[in-house]
Amino acid sequence: MLGLGVAAQGAGCVFMYGLPFLLPTLESDYGLSLAQAGVIVGAPSAGMLFTLIAWGWAADKYGERLTMTGGLALATAFLGLAAFSPHPAVLAVALALAGASGASANASSGRVVLGWFPREKRGVAMGWRQTAQPLGVALAGVIAPFALHLGGLRGALLAMTAICLVTTVCVGVFVVDPPRPAAVPGERTASPYRDPVLWRVHAASMLLVVPQFATAAFALTFLVSERHWDAGTASQVIAAAQLAGAGGRLLCGRWSDWAGSRVGPMRQLAVINGVAMLALAAGAQTGNALGSALLIAALVISMSGNGLAFTAVSELAGPAWAGRAMGGQNTAQNLVAAGTPPVLGALITGTGFGTAFALAGALALAASAATPGRSGLRRTELEAELG
Rank of each mutant, 00 (worst) to 15 (best):
R180K: 09
A138W: 14
L377T: 06
Q133F: 10
L32S: 02
L243P: 06
R374D: 07
G328H: 07
R188S: 14
W229D: 04
A312L: 14
G373W: 00
A156Y: 00
A214N: 03
G264K: 12
T131V: 10
A370I: 15
E187Y: 06
F218A: 04
R194M: 12
V41F: 04
T221H: 09
H202Q: 07
P145S: 13
R262M: 11
P265S: 04
T131W: 10
S261C: 00
L365T: 10
A338I: 09
A240T: 06
M16G: 14
T286Y: 14
V137G: 06
G260E: 07
L280Q: 06
P20Y: 02
V237Q: 05
L49F: 08
N273E: 08
L359D: 10
P20E: 01
R227G: 12
A35E: 11
L377M: 11
F357K: 02
A214G: 12
Y17H: 11
L344H: 03
L72R: 12
G70M: 05
R227P: 08
A125K: 05
S28M: 07
G350K: 10
G152I: 11
L165I: 01
H149W: 12
S314W: 06
G260F: 13
I272A: 10
R119M: 08
T355Q: 03
M16R: 15
L79H: 03
R154G: 11
G305D: 00
V6Q: 08
T51V: 15
